[in-house]
Design a binder for these strands. Structure first.
Lengths: 151, 151
DNA sequence: CCCTTGCTTGGAGTGCGCTCCAAGGTTCTA
DNA sequence: TAGAACCTTGGAGCGCACTCCAAGCAAGGG
């Protein structure tokens, strides 16, 4: 029986303690196990907090670049893949649909001639995020007001 | 054939044009059709942007207070119901699960002795919203950086 | 009277983003 | 060399928040 597959995010996220004294400026968001540039799927699970299922699913739907394989067919992720997953994680936080991220991945695969389209997509996303923040701040005001009433 | 039921959010939301000159301070978010304190379901659809399906579903799952009925059984919403839907809309924007909103609705129905619990729920939500805003601002920084690169 | 519009119900269906399963091959540790 | 831990695949299943359907009732206009 494989235990790993069923563990629901043992490390909830690589969120650092916000109260910890910030000694080094920005330690890379993803603490990567070693200097080697290849990782098994379970190492990527440990680093990203995603499940192995999700990583394989991302690949199936075209959200990942080509992932190298070992001579027996096992995935060997590289640092650039981790970087990509970091970006995907950020975009996911914005609520961007996976289909849009797949579109972005396609643009990246198509090469340099899609720079303009990629920038446009990112700028649209940025507008959405700003609108979302404004919305949330409006909601915050309502919550503050309600909480006041309950005091 | 009933057309209304299939119209997907004809008025996307009561979002006012942000470029419009802001003459009156804050006009009530929901422009209510008249001074009368009862509305048919389709009037509520027009005001809230929700579908009639969703309004009936909200009622089924216990997210609404008791809604009055006409002598023929049709729903007659009142201003307090619109106020409630406004709050629900805000909470929905925060990503709060519907089940939690139902819980809040239950607390309201249980009366004054649940004030403390309601406040706690709202305070937890407020913390979540603040965390979410911080997250989004982090994402915004990443987007800014990426967009810079594409320029 | 009939037609259209709008409303009613319980239950079934949809789309998204995972999440899991079964059956089997591989790799590491003792 | 055994056994545990880990990896592979295609496809099925799940939870959420709606979304829609079918069949029927009620009210107003021509």
């Amino acid at each position: 029986m494989t235990v790993m597959e069923t563990t629901p995010a043992p490390t909830p996220a690589p969120t650092r303690d916000p109260a910890a004294p910030e000694i080094c400026p920005p330690p890379p968001a993803h603490p990567r196990p070693d200097g080697q540039d290849h990782y098994t799927i379970s190492e990527v699970v440990a680093v990203t907090g995603l499940t192995a299922h999700t990583l394989r699913w991302y690949e199936r739907i075209g959200l990942m670049p080509h992932i190298d394989r070992s001579h027996t067919g096992q995935r060997r992720y590289r640092n650039r893949d981790l970087d990509w997953l970091t970006l995907v994680g950020k975009l996911r936080l914005t609520g961007m649909p996976v289909a849009d991220m797949v579109r972005y991945a396609e643009l990246v695969r198509e090469g340099e001639q899609t720079f303009a389209q990629r920038r446009e997509l990112l700028e649209r996303t940025r507008r959405d995020v700003r609108a979302r923040i404004a919305e949330l701040q409006g909601t915050l005001a309502v919550l503050d007001h309600k909480i006041d009433i309950y005091s």
